[in-house]
């Protein structure tokens, strides 16, 4: 498994922190309210770790999974998978101006997910001097089995897991973002990190 060296891990953590700061600033302006984002915890995970995550802890709580692909220059690419609770998303949706009676949860969820993912990844891409393009976000909740099947296939070996905790004034919005980065993307990421480390 491709591993990040301690230096690379530190550099990446630092870039993530900056990116997170920028993303929360953008979100705050957009939502017109204070947004605190905790320093994201990052770790490299293997397929089996992720499978454990996919097991719903509590069947009553509807967990939503949205996936969005991204690609930049020189093979920096991957898939951002966001996990969060529907009730959580509804609160954020109200802040974003969605009508309360809007029955279209799927659109609301993909919109929110897209906003969270792209603001963060745009900032991260900026740090890595990579401009990113995105695929349309897709709701995976009703395809859990398929997702598990895909994850079990050896298409990737390691993924970067980024845990993000959003705090918007008086309520917390918790979501987990997992960046699935295939081997090639991980190599590119390491090269970028090494280049950044050289500059210091």
């Amino acid at each position: 498994m491709a591993m990040l060296s301690a230096d690379q891990q530190d550099a990446l953590q630092e870039l993530m922190n900056v990116a997170m700061g920028m993303a929360s600033d953008q979100l705050a302006r957009y939502l017109n309210t204070l947004v605190h984002l905790q320093v994201p915890a990052i770790r490299l995970v293997q397929p089996s770790d992720l499978l454990a995550q996919l097991e719903p802890e509590n069947a009553d709580q509807q967990r939503q999974v949205v996936s969005q692909g991204f690609i930049g220059d020189a093979g920096f690419q991957g898939e951002a998978v966001l996990f969060y609770q529907l009730s959580n998303a509804r609160q954020l949706a109200t802040m974003l101006g969605y009508p309360a009676d809007d029955a279209n949860d799927a659109e609301m969820l993909t919109d929110i997910s897209s906003i969270l993912t792209t603001t963060f990844l745009n900032s991260l891409g900026g740090q890595l001097s990579a401009q990113l393009s995105y695929s349309a976000p897709r709701l995976l909740s009703d395809q859990q089995e398929l997702l598990v099947q895909r994850i079990e296939t050896p298409g990737w070996r390691a993924a970067l897991q980024v845990s993000i905790h959003y705090q918007v004034i008086d309520y917390a919005f918790q979501c987990e973002m997992v960046l699935l980065i295939p081997e090639l993307g991980l190599q590119t990421l390491q090269q970028r990190l090494d280049a950044i480390l050289l500059e210091y």
């Binding site: 953008q26 979100l27 302006r29 957009y30 974003l96 101006g97 969605y98 279209n104 799927a106 659109e107 993909t110 919109d111 897209s114 906003i115 792209t118 603001t119 745009n122 995105y134 349309a136 976000p137 897709r138």
Partner: peptide, 21 residues
């Protein structure tokens, strides 16, 4: 308008799928 405003404010893309609209 909600979609376009978010594109401008966040300088980030937004999508609409035929399955939803």
């Amino acid at each position: 308008k909600r979609k376009l405003d978010s594109v401008v404010a966040l300088n980030a893309p937004v999508f609409s799928s035929w399955e939803q609209r």
